[in-house]
């Protein structure tokens, strides 16, 4: 089988971090589920899956977030950078949710502060070094753990995109640097279905995008804020995807999302956590990943039915 999945846990460093080591689908009003899948090209080139997903809930405060990062293909340690970006962004979103939602008195400085904090964490990681698995060390021809427990690296080697949606009470905030898509599912008069909330930000060319380590990351970051319930409509879910699934879930000529997005969100809101996880893993590796060479990742957050 060309596609493997779940090897994110081998990336190390953040044991509490993203992906399948963490509990998905809590007991709150919001259900979450995420999955990652190694792309054919990464399998062929003996590269690990560089996509990561992360969820975090705080039922006491009513805060819930889902995040996704796609490590840059050319950056050899980008899966480590992706994990750091997700973990630090989740903490910052929870700490500064109200600032980001109000965008006052900080305005864009709140977003800038988040990017700077994420970049600061990445700089720390590049200086203290990462701890690749033995297998990764062999593939990348790195010294053994006995010789060099932590491998320092360049900041650019930790480059990833960053997509996040946080909900607190009846408000939401989304952040987005780079490609990939954030979709929002709405129910109400004239607005039902899944629509693009935040579109991919590429450069002119297909192999260009913005990353967390880019000098202009804060300018490139798009942010959306809103209320879950409005007079005539209600948000029932969010879907975040990397550019792998984007290839078959987003029609670029009119920015329309595929029917699959709504089906996944509906299932996430009603299925038991374990069954949903198995279904999403299958959908990603056996359906969506078959249409691309790239790594794939999706994370969902839906109102429970």
């Amino acid at each position: 089988m060309l596609i493997t999945r779940g090897n994110a846990r081998n990336a190390g460093l953040y044991k509490h971090g993203a992906n399948k080591d963490m509990p998905m689908n809590g007991n709150s009003d919001w259900a979450t589920c995420g999955s990652i899948c190694q792309g054919v090209s990464h399998y062929r080139d003996m590269q690990p899956c560089q996509d990561r997903v992360f969820t975090h809930s705080n039922d006491m405060s009513g805060f819930h977030c889902v995040l996704l990062a796609d490590g840059a293909g050319s950056a050899r340690f980008s899966q480590f950078g992706a994990e750091i970006a997700l973990a630090s962004a989740a903490v910052l979103l929870e700490e500064h949710f109200d600032d980001l939602f109000r965008a006052f008195p900080y305005g864009r400085t709140a977003e800038k502060a988040i990017v700077e904090r994420v970049q600061s964490e990445l700089v720390n990681l590049s200086e203290t070094g990462i701890d690749p698995t033995d297998e990764t060390r062999d593939i990348l021809n790195l010294p053994s753990r006995e010789e060099l427990p932590y491998v320092p690296c360049e900041l650019r080697e930790l480059a990833s995109t960053l997509l996040a949606v946080a909900v607190k009470g009846e408000r939401y905030v989304s952040l987005h640097i780079g490609d990939g898509v954030i979709g929002v599912q709405k129910r109400g008069i004239g607005t039902s279905g899944v629509q693009v909330l935040s579109k991919p930000e590429n450069g002119e060319f297909a192999n260009e995008t913005y990353f967390t380590v880019s000098g202009n990351a804060s300018e490139a970051m798009s942010i959306h804020r809103g209320r879950i319930i409005k007079r005539h409509s209600e948000i029932t879910g969010f879907i975040l995807m990397s550019d792998g699934p984007e290839a078959s879930l987003l029609r670029k000529c009119d920015m329309r999302l595929a029917g699959a997005c709504g089906k996944l969100l509906d299932a996430c809101s009603s299925l038991p956590a374990e069954e949903m996880q198995e279904q999403l893993d299958y959908a990603l590796s056996e359906v969506i990943a078959k249409r691309t060479q790239d790594d794939c990742s999706i994370v969902l957050m839906t109102r429970r039915k």
Partner: peptide, 16 residues
Amino acid sequence: DRIIEFDDLLDNPTPR
């Protein structure tokens, strides 16, 4: 039963 099938996906032109 599976949630999605290939029919649920969209086609995009290959990047040129």
